[in-house]
Design a binder for these strands. Structure first.
Lengths: 209, 209
DNA sequence: CCTCAAATGTATCCATTGGATACATTTTGG
DNA sequence: CCAAAATGTATCCAATGGATACATTTGAGG
C-alpha cells in the first residue's frame, strides 16, 4: 500500500500532463516520516536475521534518502542504536503476557520466546547500558514496564526485597543461559531444544512453580 | 621518553660521523616476537580498562611496526580477536582454583572475580561463538579445561547428566547476573556489592553449598 | 662460507564508513 | 505573502580494515 503508492507516484502515471515533475523523480523532497521509517527498517532487518546494524548509508539508501538526512533525527549512530533498542523493548513489552495470563512462568516463556525469535534485536537491547536507555523517556518507560510486570508476576506476598531477588535470579538465569547458548556453550542443537533446556533449568531451580 | 628518543634518533643529531646507521632507526628490521607482543599488548590494554580492541594501526604503532606486519600472524582482525579471547581463557584457567582448593563455591568465586576484575576481556571472550574458539587448538584446550574443572567441582556422585545440568545452571546464573550488572540492570553501586549480590543469589539457589 | 629461497616487515594504495559543513528546498506561522 | 525554521542534499574529510608489490633478513643446503 505505502509501497504501491510510492511506485505509482514515482512513475508519475497518474500525474496529469499539465504539472510535469521538476525532476526525473517525483519523490517528495521531504520524506515525511523519516525517523519512523528508519527505525522500522532497522528493526525489520534485525528481525530478518541480520545481526549487525546496517551502515548509515545502507539504511539511508533503503529509505531513499541521502545518508546525512538521518542525522537530523539521530545525533550519531549510537543514538540510532539506542532508539532501535527502545523499539525492541516496546516489542518485548507487547509480547509479554498481561492480565490474567501473567504468571511467573508465562512471563519467562514470553521472554525466552522473544530472545529466541528476535535474537539479533535481543542482543542489541542488552548490549547497551541500561542507564542510557532509561534516560530516554520512551524506551525507559518500556523497560520500567517490563520490570514492573515481572515484579507483579513474582509477587507471592513476601516482602518486596525477596520478590525482587527472585525476579533477578530468574532473569539472570534465563538471560545467562540464553547468552551461553548464543555463544555456543550449550550443546542444544536447535533453538527449540535450547528453549526447552533453559525452561527446565529454571523450573528445577524452584524460583517459579 | 620513547617519543624523545624517536625524535632524536630520527633526526640523527647524536650520531657520530664515523658509524652512521644504515637507516635513521636502530630498531631491527625483524621484531622477533611480533605475535606474542601483539597479544600481550592487546590483553594489557583490555586489562587496563579499554573495552574495545585497539585499531590495527594503533596496535602496530605501540609495538613499533607497520600496521600490515600484523597480518603476517592474523588473517584479519577477527582472527586477532579470537586469539585474544584464547589468551583470556588461559588467564581464566590460571586464576581458577585447583586441587584441594577446588570446590563449587570457590570455582564460582574465582569465575566471578575474573569477570569483575577483567570485565573487558571477559566480555570479549563471551562475545564470540564458542565453536570458533574450540576449533583452535590452544584456546579450545583452555575452554575444555575450564569445563572439566567445573564438572569435577560439581560432581557429587550423581549421574553425569545431573551434574552437567547443575554446572550449566550455576554458570548461567553467574554469567547472566554478571551481564545484567554490566548492562546496568542491577542496582548494585559498586562491583564489590554486585559480586556479593550475585554470590548470594547463587547460594540461595541451592545449586551449591 | 655463500647463495638463494622463505620468512618477515614496509610502502602504498583502495573502498568503506561515520561524520562535518555548506547549501538547497519545503513548510509554516505571523 | 513572506521570512524563518525544518528538512534534505552535495561534498568533503579522516580513520580504518584490508590488498598488492616490494624490501630486508635469515637460515638451510651446496
Amino acid at each position: 500500500m505505502s509501497a504501491v503508492k510510492a511506485v505509482v507516484t514515482r512513475a508519475g502515471w497518474l500525474q496529469d500532463g499539465l504539472t510535469m515533475p521538476k525532476s526525473d523523480s517525483d519523490q517528495p523532497y521531504h520524506h515525511g516520516a523519516l525517523k519512523e521509517a528508519a527505525l522500522t527498517a532497522v528493526v525489520a532487518r534485525l528481525r530478518r536475521g541480520e545481526d549487525e546494524l546496517p551502515t548509515v548509508r545502507e539504511l539511508a539508501a533503503e529509505i531513499g534518502v541521502s545518508h546525512r538526512a538521518l542525522y537530523r533525527y539521530f545525533a550519531d549512530k549510537d543514538a540510532l542504536k539506542q532508539a532501535v533498542a527502545g523499539e525492541g523493548f516496546g516489542l518485548l513489552a507487547e509480547r509479554l503476557p498481561s492480565g490474567s495470563d501473567l504468571t511467573a512462568l508465562s512471563l519467562i516463556d514470553g521472554f525466552l520466546r522473544f530472545a529466541f525469535d528476535e535474537t539479533s534485536l535481543y542482543r542489541l537491547m542488552f548490549s547497551l547500558r541500561a542507564a542510557a536507555l532509561l534516560a530516554e523517556p520512551a524506551p525507559g518507560q518500556q523497560v520500567r514496564r517490563v520490570i514492573a510486570l515481572a515484579m507483579h508476576a513474582f509477587d507471592d506476598g513476601t516482602e518486596e526485597e525477596a520478590v525482587r531477588n527472585r525476579v533477578f535470579s530468574a532473569w539472570g538465569l534465563a538471560h545467562g543461559l540464553f547468552d551461553l547458548w548464543r555463544a555456543g556453550a550449550l550443546r542444544a542443537a536447535t533453538p527449540e531444544l535450547a528453549h526447552k533446556f533453559i525452561r527446565t533449568r529454571i523450573l528445577e531451580s524452584g524460583l517459579v512453580d
